[in-house]
Design a protein around this nucleic acid. Structure first.
Lengths: 266, 266
DNA sequence: CTTAAACGTTTGCATATATCAAACGGGTTT
DNA sequence: AAACCCGTTTGATATATGCAAACGTTTAAG
């Protein structure tokens, strides 16, 4: 979406979709742009881009003011719809609020898509402070290997799904503590599977620790994960290795129950 | 976006964009669908729709599982980006949190786009309870005439912008209290302009009242609005007509200051 | 005050490409 | 085994897209 790597396996595709995606990607990257600015970044002539921009504007994908185009606020309403149609969000957001309140820290509800992690919901407890960096993190699907919720999911996928994800991405280092060795990661995941929870010891953001637990359904498939994150100074010793994991797993379990009852009701 | 009314004024457009929009609209409406289901709702043959779906999937707009297509979770990350690039959101979300905390109720930060209202941020105070209906409201841009924030913006637009918006939409009734008469609405807006705040007395949702104030910048243009909403039982008398309006206007003013300083810093 | 440059916009024409039928192959049902 | 439904592919065709070039404005330069 908006400039992701595409693989045309010789199969027939609609080229215009790719062109639209390219244009939206440019506008997203520039944040805002005039016709000429956008046309320079795309492999199409000014006249053609103009027709695209006119149509995208008319369809509500773009706003235009004094010749400057931006992504429309309607993406926010679409996202709201997508979220509300995601059963994990509906089953989990109250529990995540509860988790944030009980711990006083950040709590997250995440799902996996295409091997990456998308944040469905975030709740802030009393002591959690919002940072710009945090906001930016949610603008892009994240890798799974460098955070607690991601590891919790990765550990509990069935083997070939895990293999498929691991082989398509190299383990980029986010901090000094990020696990970048595949064998080491697989060992860690083994432990995560045994424990039922995953830890993140400053592997994503320096100074931040986190605890995550997977959200499963009876047939074993993984719906997502919950996590709680806090500054290392407030998350250490027994609290980090036992008390918080218990609470996070309890939250995950409550969400699992919600998911099942919701499924039963239809 | 996703099936909005389009006006092709004879100008040339990219037809594929409209087709993509149609397809995404169908999927949004069905929530999920198979190729055949989607093709039935669109004026294209199964084979053609198949090519579109493959491309949209490949570009990350759709997910596919066992032949069932859905809108991708990546719309959530895009929305996050759009929000974070909106200066009003960056300048206002902390203040809206503060407003929710001080009043213990719902607080909203909204902006206008194409004559409709989009919620940029919502914060819940101690007493505010989340309802499904509330969630659904944010899935579609709302009319301006039946809620406090919308009236606050509408009242303070310059006359021709207000006229342009009012003439393109009829004043649909949402409850018995919704103002559906244009003359009456214009009178109310006059009062809103004089007072500096707008009231909503069960005009959007039965049993809910709200207070909204516009967010302006020095040159007079309207950036958006803030509002606080609560059950009528908790928002009446002096609190409804004076105390809360003061707090809401104060919040709006703080956001205005944030916007200016942010602008100055670049 | 004239000229040049830059920008968004439109248009004719050539061609790439989106679309339709029709057929294929795998499942499931009859 | 026949009939059916599904997703998928393919060749042929119409047409929508894309280029180049020109136009009308506005802004900058000489």
């Amino acid at each position: 979406m908006f400039g992701t790597e595409k693989e045309t396996n010789g199969r027939r595709e609609i080229k215009s979709v790719h062109k639209i995606d390219d244009i939206l990607a440019v506008i997203k990257r520039l944040n805002e742009g005039t016709l000429t600015e956008i046309a320079e970044e795309v492999d199409l002539t000014k006249g053609t881009v103009h027709t695209y921009l006119r149509t995208l504007h008319n369809c509500g994908y773009l706003t235009e003011e004094d010749g400057v185009y931006r992504l429309s606020l309607q993406f926010i309403t679409v996202a709201e719809h997508v979220r509300n149609e995601t059963s994990l969000y509906m089953a989990g957001h109250d529990e995540v609020d509860e988790l944030a309140e009980r711990t006083g820290e950040y709590a997250h509800l995440v799902a996996e898509e295409r091997g990456r992690e998308v944040t469905l919901y975030e709740s802030r407890g009393e002591y959690a402070i919002a940072t710009d960096y945090h906001l930016r993190l949610r603008e892009t699907p994240q890798y799974l290997h460098h955070n607690a919720a991601g590891k919790a999911m990765l550990a509990n996928f069935d083997a070939d799904r895990r293999d498929r994800i691991l082989e398509t991405q190299d383990l980029e280092a986010q901090t000094d503590n990020t696990i970048t060795d595949e064998a080491e990661l697989r060992d860690t995941l083994e432990t995560v599977r045994e424990n039922g929870y995953a830890l993140n010891d400053e592997e994503e953001i320096r100074g931040m620790r986190a605890v995550g637990a997977p959200i499963r359904v009876p047939d074993g498939s993984i719906f997502g994960a919950v996590s709680m994150s806090a500054p290392a100074s407030r998350l250490q010793g027994e609290r980090f290795r036992s008390a918080v994991p218990e609470i996070v797993m309890e939250t995950a379990n409550l969400i699992e129950v919600n998911l099942e009852t919701a499924q039963r009701d239809g």
